[in-house]
Amino acid sequence: MPDVTLETRDLTVRFGGHVAVDHVSCRFHAGELTAIVGPNGAGKTTYFNLISGQIPVSEGTVLLNGNDLTRATVPARTLAGIGRAFQLTNLFPDLTVLENLRLVVQAHRGPKFSLFSRAAAHEELTEAAQVILQRVRLDTMADQVVTALSHGDQRKLEVAMLIALDPQIYMFDEPTAGMSADEAPVVLDLIAEIKADTSRTVLLVEHKMDVIRTLADRIIVLHNGALVADGPPAEVMGSDIVREAYLGKEIADV
């Protein structure tokens, strides 16, 4: 079995009386792509938020390589190696594509507190950003302001931002949502490339079953905040509990 990189133990969050994520214990391994599925409102994005730190945990722990990050801040987790792309495009809207990426590269390579050097003079940052732009095929858009980009290109930039972060854990939250049929493959190929690097762990929230079938090594199913199934795709997708979670008990019984 490959190394466990990320682990959640009894991870729970309550909003008032509502338990959005309910004692989810799960281990993720290097070189593995885990798809997280479940109906709307199952707690998939909330689970992501607990791992990357946007929402404080009510109970349980988040471990990265055995280190407890449950109380760590968002930037601390990011620098420790948990990288996240967002479901709703979440960029720096009035900066250019290149500036967006440069900022990410700068965040983990520095210089962070250089006050008196010119940002544009740090060519190593620009070069690193440009390499990534080519990978997502946005290199011709480098000097465009984000708000001028199409939705598909903004989604690509969102993925590029995560790649620029070069994290140990990649978390994708519906990376192809709203993308056209000819744009989506670019992003999916990138995710496949990342997965091929056996030192990386990929978590993917996705609704499209064909995407899951081609990419996932493993599927976990969340339903009403609880982990209800965990296993290889073929096994999980055929199971009753998944059909029940998606379709409701009555219909599944028919």
Partner: peptide
Amino acid sequence: ENAFRAEAVGYRV
């Protein structure tokens, strides 16, 4: 522009 994302890429706002 986006303090939320700045945190998420690793800057301590």
